[in-house]
Amino acid sequence: MAAMLTDKVLTCVSCLDEVLLGKSHQIRLAVTCLLAGGHLLIEDLPGMGKTTLAHALARVFGLQDTRVQFTSDMLPADLLGISIFESSTGRFVFHPGPIFCQLLLADEINRTTPKTQSALLEAMEEGQVTLEGTTHALPEPFFVIATQNPLTQFGTFPLPESQLDRFLMRIALGYPDPASERQLLMRGGERQGGNIMSVLTPDELLQARSDSQGVHVSVDLIHYLQRLVQFTRDSDDFSQGVSPRGALAVLRCAKSWAWLHKRHHVVPEDIQAVLPAVIGHRVRRSDDVSGQSAEFLVEQLLRQVDVLSSQ
C-alpha cells in the first residue's frame, strides 16, 4: 500500500517532468515540499516556468487551485473575501475570497504591498482566516505556491525575513539546459499543462504526507544535521544562524525526500539534497544585504561540515 502510494507520487513527478523539461531536481523538491506539508516559494526571473510548474503541481495532485495575480493595488479583502450586506435577509453574508482553495498560486507575491502579503502569510501559518471576529477554516490540504521575481527587479516589496520563514522551501528554476530548451522550442511553446490528468486525490496526498513523516531518522543523522546547523551559528560567514524551526524544516523535508526515493530511513544525502532549498532563504551572508548569495553559502556550508564525524 505504502509502496503503491510512493509509485503514484512518482508518477506525478514524471508527469511534471514532461511539463517542465530538464528541471527534475526542482520538481522533486517541489513535490517534497508538498509532501512535507509546507508552502513553496519559487523565485526566478519572468518566463522561466514558475507559473507552469505551480499549475501543473495543482493539476497532477488533483487539487482545487486558484491563481491570484498579486499587484501593488491589491487589498487583503481581494484575497481573503468580504462580508456583504444582503438586503433580502438583512444580514451580512461572507463571500470567501480566492484564498479558500486547496492550492493557492500567489503569482508575483513581492509585487503587492506588505499589508496584503501579511494577510496571506497569516493564513498560511494558521490555516484559517479571521475576518470581523469570525474564523473561517481553510480547506485541507492547503498549500500556497508563491512565485516572486528577484528583489533586484523594479517595483517590488521584498518579503521580510519573518515572512520568508513561513515558506518551507525556496527554489529557483534557472535557465533550462540546451537539450531541454531545444525540445521546448520544437514543441512551439504550446502549454502542456492543459492535458495533465490528476493522478492523486487530496486524501491520498494527506496520506502520503503522514507516511513520509514516519521515515526513520537515526541518531547519527540527527548529529549531522545538528553539526550543520551549529556551523551556521558559529561561522562568521553567516549573519544569522539557522533557527530550531529551520532545523525542524530541514528534517521534515529530508524525511519526505527519503520517502520519495523509497527509503525507509533518512541518509545524509537526503539532507544535502534539500538543505539549499530549505535554509537558503533563512540564512544570509554577513556581507550581503540582498540575500542573493545564499545558495552558494549553503554549498560552502555543506563542504565544510564532515559527514563522517563523531560530534
Binding site: 544525502e269 563542504r303 565544510q304 563522517l308
Partner: peptide, 20 residues
C-alpha cells in the same frame, strides 16, 4: 580506512558520503 585511502592518494571530501 579513509585515512589509509588518503595516504594512497584518494581523498574523500568532507561533504561526501561514502556512496558519493
Amino acid at each position: 580506512l579513509l585515512r589509509y585511502l588518503s595516504r594512497k592518494g584518494v581523498e574523500r571530501n568532507p561533504e561526501e558520503t561514502i556512496r558519493q
